[in-house]
Simulated scan of single mutants.
Amino acid sequence: MNLLHKTLALAATALALQAQAAPYQAIVPAKSSVTFSYKQMGVAVDGRFKKFAAQVNFDPAKAEAGKASFDVELASVDAGSSEADDEVVTKSWFNAAAFPKASFVAKQFKPTAPNQYEVTGSLTIKGQTREVKFPMKHTAQGKDGVLSGSFILKRGDFNIGEGMWAKFDVVANDIQVNFSLTAQPGK
Results as ranks from 00 to 15, higher is better:
Val72Ile: 08
Ala166Ile: 12
Ala21Phe: 11
Ile27Met: 14
Ala16Cys: 07
Val105His: 02
Ala166Met: 05
Thr139Arg: 11
Trp93Gly: 03
Lys110Asp: 07
Gly142Asn: 07
Ile175His: 01
Val28Met: 10
Asp157Arg: 06
Ser122Gln: 10
Leu15Arg: 14
Ala65Trp: 00
Ala183Glu: 05
Gln141Met: 10
Ala79Pro: 05
Thr182Leu: 02
Leu17Met: 13
Asp86Trp: 00
Pro111Phe: 01
Asp85Asn: 12
Asp71Pro: 10
Val56Pro: 00
Val170Arg: 05
Lys101Glu: 08
Ile152Glu: 07
Trp165Met: 01
Thr7Ile: 15
Thr139Val: 08
Val132Asp: 03
Lys51Thr: 14
Ser69Glu: 09
Leu74Pro: 02
Val77Ala: 00
Ser33Phe: 01
Asp85Met: 04
Gly80Ala: 05
Ile160Tyr: 00
Ser32His: 06
Ala172Ser: 12
Ala22Gly: 13
Thr90Val: 00
Gln20Asp: 08
Ala113Pro: 01
Gly80Pro: 09
Phe151Met: 05
Ala106Ile: 03
Ala11Trp: 12
Val56Leu: 02
Glu87Ala: 12
Ala61Val: 04
Glu118Ile: 01
Gln141Trp: 07
Gln20Gly: 13
Gly186Asp: 05
Ala44Glu: 12
Gln141Phe: 03
Ser33Tyr: 07
Phe94Ile: 03
Ala65Thr: 10
Thr112Ile: 10
Asn57Trp: 06
Ala22Ile: 08
Asn57Asp: 14
Val77His: 00
Met41Cys: 06
Asn57His: 12
Ala11Ile: 12
Ala172Thr: 09
Lys51Asp: 06
Val43Ser: 03
Val28Ser: 13
Gly121Ile: 02
Val170Phe: 09
Ile125Asn: 05
Phe168Gln: 14
Gly161Pro: 02
Ile125Val: 12
Asn57Gly: 02
Thr182Phe: 01
Lys50Arg: 13
Ala106Gly: 03
Gly80Trp: 04
Ala140Ser: 14
Glu64Ser: 10
Gly47Pro: 07
Arg130Lys: 15
Ala102Trp: 01
Gln176Val: 04
Lys126Met: 07
Leu147Glu: 06
Ala53Thr: 13
Glu73Met: 13
His138Ala: 09
Gly163Cys: 03
Thr35His: 08
Gln176Glu: 03
Asp71Asn: 13
Lys143Asn: 14
Glu162Ile: 01
Phe168Val: 13
Lys101Met: 06
Thr13His: 09
Ala106Gln: 06
Gly145Ser: 11
Asn57Met: 04
Met1Val: 14
Ser92Asn: 11
Asn178Ile: 09
Lys67Ile: 08
Ala183Val: 12
Thr13Lys: 10
